[in-house]
């Protein structure tokens, strides 16, 4: 008999649309911190995906590990250091700026500068000596535009 009442009570508890049960949920500060750290770490079993975006089981566990460490009061730097000590540089989404890695951090800009300088010098060389002689002043603006139209109209 008693069981039936308990069951009935339980059913009410479950079935009744308690207004207080539907709540507004939001991210906690911890969630945001987990995300920020997870985005900088690579899912080691995926193809260039971070552990935040990946759905692989290892990524899920790594996110849990980050959360646990944050709850224990570890700082983001300590967590980075922990993962680095386990997996090496590979775990970071970008090569850390030391040693040979400087090569790829500097190369794009170095190439632009060197290439730009080289181009500038070459073009200066190619410029016809004759063009150094004073040229006639450019024709009036409208004239030039008319010429352009004239030219284009000749080839309908």
């Amino acid at each position: 008999m008693m069981n039936r009442y308990i069951l009935f009570g339980f059913l009410i508890l479950v079935m009744f649309p308690w207004p207080t049960l539907a709540k507004v949920v939001d991210e906690t500060e911890l969630d945001v911190q987990v995300r920020e750290i997870a985005k900088t770490l690579r899912c080691t079993v995926c193809q260039t995906e971070n552990i935040w975006e990946s759905g692989a089981p290892l990524a899920v566990q790594m996110r849990a590990a980050i959360r646990e460490r944050l709850t224990l009061g570890h700082s983001p730097e300590e967590i980075h250091a922990y993962f680095l000590s386990r997996y090496g540089d590979y775990i970071l989404m970008q090569p850390p700026k030391h040693g040979m890695n400087w090569l790829i951090w500097v190369a794009p800009f170095a190439l632009l500068l060197v290439g730009g300088f080289f181009l500038y010098k070459e073009v200066k060389q190619w410029v016809r000596p004759s063009s150094s002689t004073p040229q006639q002043p450019p024709p009036p603006l409208d004239q030039e535009a008319r010429e352009r139209i004239e030219r284009e109209l000749h080839h309908p």
């Binding site: 690579r42 260039t48 090496g88 590979y90 970008q94 090569p95 040979m100 890695n101 790829i104 190369a107």
Partner: peptide, 28 residues
Amino acid sequence: AATVFLGTLYPLMVETLQGGKVTVGPPY
């Protein structure tokens, strides 16, 4: 193009020259 090329092949270069491994990902 050279940047993308270098970034794509850099992990291979590091592995060949140093034996280590790095990730060149979107932040780079």
